Amino acid sequence: MTTTASTASTGSTEVTEVTARSAGTPAAPRGRLGGVGLVVAGALSTQFGSAVAALLFPRAGALGVVTLRLVLSALLLVAVCRPRLRGHSRADWAVVCGFGIALGGMNTLFYQAIERIPLGPAVTLEVLGPLALSVIASRRLASLLWAALALAGVFLLGGGGAGGFGELNLAGAAFALGAGAMWAAYILLSARAGARFPKADGLALAMSVAALVSLPIGLASAGGALLVPSTLAFGLVLAAMSSGLPYSLELFALRRLPASTFAVLMSLAPAIAALAGLLVLGQELAAPQWLAIGLVVAASIGAVRMGRR
């Protein structure tokens, strides 16, 4: 799960347009191939970071791990961005607090999901949130075709067999769908924060809010397990893989790519997540599940492109 620019890009180009304006004008076509590589590298870092998070669950539980990730990510972002705290209105702070709550809720629900179901199906279900937002925002009847394609993928994913809803934990599937709803809220609030705060200040402050909200929950759940040196070391790796590295790569990519191309590439998240689950966690998926993931990816790409037009 991502908490950076990429998370706002899978189902809508609104946030990437805001970030692109702050990052600069996309470069000439010769620089776009490098931009594609940066986006793919960022997506790989994000999804393999989620796989690393799953490896930490036996040490501190899902609630403890998400707290560790949010706190360390907030410290990294604040150290790098050094956001200005003065000179903001109450409305600005209301937006950034809402942004932080959406960010924290999205990650907490997602980690609850991947504690119960494989990473690939979890991201596939989560993507339905921003996909639905993209379909609604496009206000085109043809967008319903992409929604129907996504629903076909979900139906296939839940059609039984290994990893289908018949064997997946239903609570895990519900958590993934809830994370998708929070992802849609994140998209809207991230765009507003990007318009009110310079550079990545809004993201750094929102991450801090998410960390503060999550901290008492994580401490109550994991307690002293969060302070074990090896767990802290893994948590720092997780924060770098899921926040620091992908955000930096995506920021550079947006200087070379149009926001719409960036959003299309980020629609590959479910497929990359399934690959990370297979390679890191040994989560094998049946052929119908791979087809289901492909249908949702295709629907997401189609919705993004239609929304752009």
Rank of each mutant, 00 (worst) to 15 (best):
T108C: 11
L278A: 15
R140A: 09
W290M: 08
R69W: 05
G244T: 11
V123Q: 04
G282P: 11
G160V: 03
R82F: 01
I187T: 14
V228T: 06
A150D: 12
I101E: 07
G64M: 04
G160H: 10
G307V: 02
L232I: 06
A132Q: 00
G158L: 01
V135N: 01
G31N: 03
G11T: 03
F99H: 15
R90K: 05
R82H: 08
P270Y: 09
P83E: 09
I114A: 05
I101Q: 05
L33I: 14
A113Q: 13
A263I: 11
M106T: 14
A51T: 04
Y247W: 14
A193D: 02
A51V: 11
I101H: 01
W93Y: 15
L257W: 08
I187V: 15
G100S: 13
Y111T: 10
M306W: 00
E17C: 00
A150R: 05
G129S: 09
P198I: 05
A274W: 12
R139K: 13
P121C: 04
S50C: 08
S208G: 15
A200N: 10
E250S: 02
A23S: 09
V264K: 01
L141H: 08
T46M: 13
A79S: 11
L56E: 11
T25P: 00
S208D: 00
G223N: 06
L212G: 09
L268W: 01
G100R: 13
L279N: 06
K199H: 14
R196K: 03
R309S: 03
L268Y: 09
V228E: 03
G11I: 06
R32I: 07
T67L: 01
K199N: 14
V154H: 02
L177I: 05
R139Y: 03
S243F: 14
V264E: 02
G37C: 14
G277L: 07
I187W: 01
A286T: 11
C97D: 04
I272N: 06
A150S: 12
I217R: 04
V127E: 10
L70S: 02
A274M: 12
S89T: 14
A210V: 10
V297Y: 03
G282W: 06
L177H: 10
F234D: 00
L215M: 07
T2Y: 06
A269L: 11
V264D: 03
L170R: 15
I217N: 03
A211Y: 13
A150V: 07
F48N: 07
L227M: 08
L33Y: 07
L68C: 08
A142N: 01
A298C: 12
